[in-house]
Design a binder for these strands. Structure first.
Lengths: 182, 182
DNA sequence: CCTCAAGTGGACGCGGCGTCCACTTGAGGC
DNA sequence: GCCTCAAGTGGACGCCGCGTCCACTTGAGG
């Protein structure tokens, strides 16, 4: 049963409206009602697809994440397979900082606190880093993967940039970390 | 103008009640009303001192933090001054994991998301780690300090322990990180 | 054209938040 | 000991966002 025409139209309107609102003010103080009104639909319609703000942000982020995930799995080195683990980790860090820079407002809506770890995306990043750690013969790759992903927490990123720290400095620091860890 | 007797009594009742409630269920679903009722106090009285849950959790954590902060500044090595930076960082990690293990429910009430970075405690930890990084001649100690503190995020700790990871494994992983970084 | 499942929207009830203000209490002055 | 008044108290109140529910509309397939 494919999506009905009017449903598809509304889905598009909702995502467009949400994207704009998230960008304008923070995702934090955009209410479901705001999104519904901006999209010209009722609250009920909104809830039918997206149980909360996080779900909407996830949908918006989806394609960007997919693209990076694709590069990690099958792209050219050092992001994709072929380079030594330390370099792949550094490249991954750089790509993630870039993603945060461009979409921090969305990510923040999504991954606040605990919910971050429940997303499929986190699982994917975790697996990726764990495999790299294992390839580098690091001890306890499972736990190490969490530790190495922690500096990419959106809250931290926003805190740092809010303090005037540039993405470049963050990337540089993470590159150094990657080099020393593996 | 010292605190009035009845005010002091109520402050104690509030903290005791909050501690108990936070421990019983998570801090997440304890309402201000719950705390007020459990303390036998009105909502107004509660708000007079503590503008939100976070403030209460901070007050509860205060003494434990002070104790660790004291040890970092003036205690015996490797926690206090005297040991090489890498060992001091490892000891700090171990102490923090211990603190999280014992008080995760409180910390979680406090440091959810961005608010974590605004607390005085985070500033203290940050300064401590930055000084260690500088002593080890690490590049950009300011940013590195944030990166090295990230794995101590309460949300991550709870996620890991919820997955069956023991505090010992976390400490071990962090110890290895400390050894390689400095 | 008809049917009926899928989709829609807004009214509704709930619950927590934070404020406000009339009342009470206790500490210091006499 | 009593009086005064600022500090402290508590609960009623209004507000707002959430999530649900259901009577209505729309569109695709027969």
């Amino acid at each position: 049963m494919p999506e009905r025409a009017d449903a598809a139209r509304n889905r598009a309107k909702i995502l467009a409206a949400a994207e704009e609102l998230f960008a304008a003010r923070g995702a934090a103080d955009v209410t479901m009602e705001d999104i519904a009104r901006a999209a010209g639909v009722g609250r009920g319609t909104l809830y039918r697809r997206y149980p909360d703000r996080a779900a909407i942000a996830v949908a918006l982020l989806d394609e960007h994440e997919r693209q990076l995930q694709e590069s990690l799995l099958r792209g050219p080195p050092p992001l994709g397979p072929g380079a030594p683990p330390a370099e792949r980790l550094a490249a991954f860090y750089a790509a993630m900082v870039d993603l945060l820079t461009r979409h921090a407002h969305l990510v923040l809506g999504t991954e606040v606190g605990h919910s971050r770890f429940k997303t499929g995306a986190y699982g994917f990043w975790h697996t990726h880093v764990r495999v790299l750690a294992a390839a580098a013969n690091a001890p306890d790759p499972d736990v190490l993967a969490d530790v190495l992903l922690a500096p990419l927490a959106p809250e931290l990123f926003l805190h740092q940039t809010g303090q005037g720290v540039t993405p470049e400095r963050i990337t540089a620091s993470l590159r150094a970390l990657a080099a020393r860890t593996f």
